[in-house]
């Protein structure tokens, strides 16, 4: 009897405690929300104050440029095929920068990731060194390397390619080593027992396990790198971005060229995105069904 009353009292206490906890949690959420909203508002007003044009004024003009572009370009539709032909080499250059950078970056990432994964590393003592190397090359924005290399090598696609490759090596290296950590190490033991060298162990024991996931990440990176290569072109590294900069600086009267480049860039990005996501889908689903069986 006494026990029951005690437990009811306890239950009441638990209920009160729970409600107090909920109230406290709500209060914290509210405070966090208020801080967040205040940060956003203050941030936008600070950024707006430092801007050349105001936000509301800009909002009215938002469609001015695109509509001018469309109106002028639609009057010269017949010239579009010629523009496409003119700018096609630049497009190829942009895609080549991205592809070569992804390839070189991925090759470096393979070695960096194998050298920095426990259980696979050739020199286990150097794992932290290779990790920091990846962190640093991931942290350097492409534009920094590109601008410095443009000063030394002169403008063109190579500085952009090297810059993107360095960043790719770091970014893919991290993702690759995460994949490596999930790989089964037993094939390595088997290969070690028959006297395989480190290169053979990696090529025969690890790479067949992780290749689909690596490829999928590399394809995703390729999508990102196409965009990066277009942007770097804009700061002087050749390709479609460079042509775009020239075309828009000519201003009115030459909008048809700018529009043609916009269109080319848009189509390229959409096509590459779609193709790569199709193949990534196949790669990851294939890998999943293998893992299940």
């Amino acid at each position: 009897m006494a026990d029951t009353t005690a437990s009811t009292r306890d239950l009441g206490g638990i209920h009160d405690d729970y409600m107090a906890l909920t109230r406290q949690k709500r209060l914290y959420s509210l405070v966090l929300l208020i801080i967040f909203v205040a940060l956003m508002v203050a941030g936008f007003s600070v950024a707006g104050g430092r801007n050349a044009g105001s936000f509301w004024g800009g909002l009215d003009n938002f469609f001015d440029y695109p509509s001018e572009l469309v109106i002028e370009a639609s009057g010269k539709l017949s010239e579009f095929p010629a523009h496409f032909v003119t700018f096609f080499p630049a497009l190829v250059e942009t895609v080549n920068i991205a592809a070569a950078a992804t390839l070189l970056g991925a090759l470096a990432a393979i070695f960096l990731s194998l050298l920095s994964t426990r259980g696979m590393a050739r020199f286990p003592a150097l794992i932290p060194v290779f990790r920091r190397l990846m962190d640093i090359s991931r942290a350097i924005p492409e534009i920094v390397v590109a601008l410095v290399l443009i000063f030394i090598l002169g403008g063109g696609p190579v500085p952009a390619m090297i810059a993107i490759a360095i960043h790719t090596a770091g970014a893919l290296g991290k993702l690759f080593s995460e994949v490596n950590e999930n790989a089964d190490l037993k094939p390595l033991d088997g290969l070690t027992s028959v006297g395989a060298t480190w290169g053979q162990k990696m090529a025969l024991g690890i790479i067949p396990q992780v290749a689909p996931n690596w490829l999928s990440y590399a394809l995703l990176r390729f999508e990102i790198n196409v965009r990066a290569s277009a942007i770097l072109g804009f700061v002087g590294a050749g390709g479609l971005g460079y042509e775009l900069k020239n075309a828009i600086s000519w201003g009115q009267g030459r909008y048809d060229e700018a529009a043609a480049i916009f269109l080319l860039l848009f189509i390229t990005i959409v096509v590459i995105d779609q193709t790569s996501s199709h193949y990534r889908d196949r790669l990851t689903h294939g890998a999943k069904s293998e893992r299940r069986s």
Partner: peptide
């Protein structure tokens, strides 16, 4: 698909240069 580069160009026409853009 339009991509950050093209948005940046369109926006800097409308809002001028600066961090808000």
């Amino acid at each position: 698909g339009v991509d950050a580069l093209i948005w940046t160009i369109i926006l800097s026409r409308a809002f001028g240069l600066g961090p808000l853009t």
